[in-house]
Design a protein around this nucleic acid. Structure first.
Length: 203
DNA sequence: TGGACAACCGTTATCTCG
DNA sequence: CGAGATAACGGTTGTCCA
């Protein structure tokens, strides 16, 4: 609705990624990181893709620490528990689960867990008010660190602990991939790492 | 204050499998 | 061919800097 597109649709390739494109993106990010600028990166990497598309592809698919599918019952429990506490804060939920992306968690919820929950609610509790746990009011203001809420939830955790900002600074210093991907930044919405310059954030 | 950017999340498109 | 799973897109929001 009257919004300028993030990139020139005519000039960029869209749709599914080819293995060649994956390889180009992977090798570029592994060698250089995103260069601090996803918008400029595809050009440097020789990709005819929107920077946003590259970023998403890397974060959701190409990162070496990503796991796909095969959600365990424990992970299901974590998602369910966090969803009842946080609502659809997929990035927050994903940040509590090793190797999972917000997109993965969201897809898993929408395709499996939601239905399962509805079915279970229908079986065990016909009362309308008891069907789906009402999500907690969304907080997007960033005035409160969302992670600070998680330890009080009393959930089974997949990770040993919740990461802290310092953990990621440290990980970034050790691991070029962690430095490049920004994968867990969602956990720090409202208390993000400072930008270095021109809107770029230190990872 | 507005532009640029990353991050986020809902929705849609595409693929896969029965 | 339809349903389910997954990948990608579109639009919004929040933060930073000039």
């Amino acid at each position: 609705m009257g919004r300028t597109p993030c990139c020139d649709r005519a000039a960029v390739k869209r749709g599914p990624w080819s293995p060649e494109e994956d390889e180009a993106l992977r090798s570029y990010v592994q060698r250089h990181g995103s260069g601090g600028n996803w918008i400029a990166m595809p050009k440097k990497a020789g990709l005819k893709r929107c920077g946003k598309s590259c970023r998403l592809r890397w974060l959701n698919y190409l990162r070496p620490d990503i796991r796909h599918g095969g959600f365990t019952a424990e992970e299901d429990a974590v998602i369910l528990s966090l969803y009842t506490q946080l609502g659809s804060k997929w990035s927050l939920i994903a940040s509590q689960m090793e190797g999972r992306t917000d997109n993965d968690v969201k897809n898993h919820w929408n395709t499996k867990l939601k239905k399962r929950l509805l079915a279970a609610a229908g079986t065990f509790s016909p009362a309308p008010h008891a069907r789906v746990p009402a999500p907690a009011p969304a907080f997007r203001t960033g005035h409160v660190s969302p992670l600070s809420l998680v330890p009080s939830v009393g959930i089974p955790t997949v990770k040993n602990r919740a990461y802290t900002y310092d953990d990621f600074l440290g990980a970034g210093a050790r691991d070029p991939f962690a430095a490049a991907d920004g994968s867990t930044s969602g956990a720090f919405r409202g208390c993000r790492p400072p930008m270095v310059h021109g809107g770029q954030r230190a990872q």
